[in-house]
Design a binder for these strands. Structure first.
Lengths: 217, 217, 217, 217
DNA sequence: CATGAATGAGCCTTCATTCAT
DNA sequence: TATGAATGAAGGCTCATTCAT
């Protein structure tokens, strides 16, 4: 599984090339925003940790908020885009192996696990700041609605036909699945990151819980 | 189910009687903290919305942070304390009706549902600020460890014996259950409060998901 | 001729009573604005000279600009309002003494002379900042059009009838008169305040110049 | 009457040749200084409007102030130098036609009218900034004292001898004349540039006013 | 108990200026 | 010559907190 270097990604996302100072600014901002929250972070502290004069921040980002947005936006796309990566969902209808819900979910969780692991601070920021910045909310909702939702629905319906999902409304299936997966990630990386997790095992339990939970009773 | 008037509760929690001004301060603070976050809220705005002079806040709370803590602390106790209300858990071993996991969970979810419904803004504050204030984290953890955890464990083990819960580690059972229940509350009251929910039905789906999910597969 | 204490006047203009600190702020602001111009004056310098914390300024005036406006606005009214004080103009048509243009002009110039003398710094500010702040321009224009212009016109027409003013358009008469009077004030108080002026004499010369200048040739 | 292209003039004044970029800088600076005042103008805005990098300005002018001075200085000379152009004054004593005050004044006003018309923004800058920059004041005073004053005095005395000017001190004559002429220019080009002026007529009125005003009464 | 004027540290942002390229 | 990234001092303004009334 390839490494997700967010800074590099952000740099590519920006139309212009980044100076090393700008990269430092972003690195520092991500760290401190995650530690103490956007509102409680001062630009002078960012400048300090980035080893840069305070004015330099504002040469690259017109406002502190623009810095936040430009950090968070590319991540949102990345967050939603591969959520049900095309390959998986398309293959569901072709590849016998992926046609099994369990297999698909396992792939999905592992991919997400890797993604979250590489980006904990950034995801913390998104989780926190989404509540207060409509722009972020909107961006997220959009990405979700266009990229995740239709594929997810299609898959749920397929598995319903195959009898692997019982008599639940599709939205409820989504809610339950996402709750469970997100709950694992949050427990694993945010609430108790220092606990001695047996990730393989825990993923299997989670999978079993979802699989059995969604079957008719 | 009786009404949870937090303000009244907070007033009772405070050792001294509360003046009406103080009650206004708390009401205003809860509203604005929930809307824009603790760090982004100014005491002058609170004073404004409370219809009180700026100085009055500091007559009752030495610092802005103390105001936050004094709002959040009693809630934490309330949040954890009745989570597995004694009556339930004790009765599990006596009352034939409660001895059924499904029945117990249903009672629990409904009680929590009511509780969350009455306290959305306050819970938003806790969710947000826990991340940045170790005091809150500690308070929460403590309440959880002493009140919820042991009873929860006991119940899980009972249901395992009865064959209603399959071969999962107890901690994993807790994680999965809490994820699912909290996921419902968050979707219901925070992410999509304006959606046209059929709460009874949705609770039943959620129950079924947990019940089936935890059985051996 | 009574003394024009602008600060006192500003205080009365403000709806609320002024604290002594606020009076100091205004005094200091007038001084420094006049010395170096609004844009080149820093609020910290004003605070300094006023013997006040910088924050105090913003407790009374939301912005630096509001401070400027609230200094300048009452003056504008005062500047225009008595320009052709009612008593004069009304009396022109009644009082035999005032019916003479020379007498009227002499009274007018002396009154204005006193007024300017008492308010040089404030008038400097208005002269300078009018160019850049449309609000001030607008306020001035309004005061001029409603208070000065109609009376001035009436008087000019009267003196034309009496043969004391020759065949000039009324607007031109106003332009020439105002130029000459303002020119005296500016030379006297702004350009060469340190010159050894014989004010009585100079006013007489100025009067003669206008009187003769406006007569038919 | 030949055109006054200030930019070209400034370029000639500068010892070195000007690059086109430098010309753009000056053009932009004049525009913006006139619009919002020197202190309220940022070098970055000048660079922007000039289509030049921020640093480029400082390649040509060590400081922002130097830019101002180098714009204003040549103008001051031009402003004063031809005020009583040699040809006129010298001819006053020779040429019968020019020996008439009226004729001389008419020539003078028309020449100044043209000059002001071509240089409104620059003159606005001088008028504004003279108040705050002693260098400019000094430059102006000097030019006035050496070029204008002696010739003006000489002429006034001549016309007194000829009986065209009455019993006024020479300085007073100057003050009254300059007030009236400058008052016209300022009304015409700064206060009411959009009014529908009949310039020929207005100049004649102004001349008549001065001529009659200065005669003995 | 309540007020609100006053404070001064600190915040985000702008700006003139420098310098390596 | 021209660039534009970088600087850091300074600017206007906000804010939690204090205190005399």
């Amino acid at each position: 599984m390839e490494r997700h270097d967010m800074i590099k990604e952000l740099m590519e996302a920006a139309d212009q090339k980044m100076t090393p100072k700008q990269a430092n600014i972003i690195r520092a901002a991500i760290e401190i925003f995650a530690e103490k929250g956007y509102a409680a972070t001062s630009t002078s502290e960012i400048a300090n940790r980035a080893g840069v004069a305070e004015g330099t921040i504002f040469r690259h980002y017109k406002t502190k908020k623009e810095l936040l947005i430009s950090i968070v936006t590319p991540m949102i796309t990345r967050f939603a885009a591969p959520f049900f990566a095309e390959k998986f969902v398309n293959n569901v209808f072709v590849d016998e192996n992926l046609a099994d819900m369990d297999t698909l979910l396992r792939e999905l969780i592992k991919e997400r696990y890797e993604f979250v692991k590489q980006n904990v601070p950034l995801l913390k920021i998104i989780l926190q700041e989404m509540a207060f910045h409509p722009e972020i909310q909107r961006g997220y909702r959009e990405a979700f609605v266009t990229n995740v939702l239709p594929r997810f629905k299609k898959a749920v319906e397929l598995f319903k036909e195959k009898g692997q999902i019982g008599d639940f409304p599709t939205e409820t299936v989504m809610r339950l699945t996402i709750s469970t997966v997100a709950g694992f990630m949050i427990a694993r990386f945010i609430i108790m990151p220092d606990f001695d997790w047996d990730d393989e095992q825990e993923i299997e339990y989670t999978l079993r819980f979802i699989r059995n939970g969604l079957i008719d009773g």
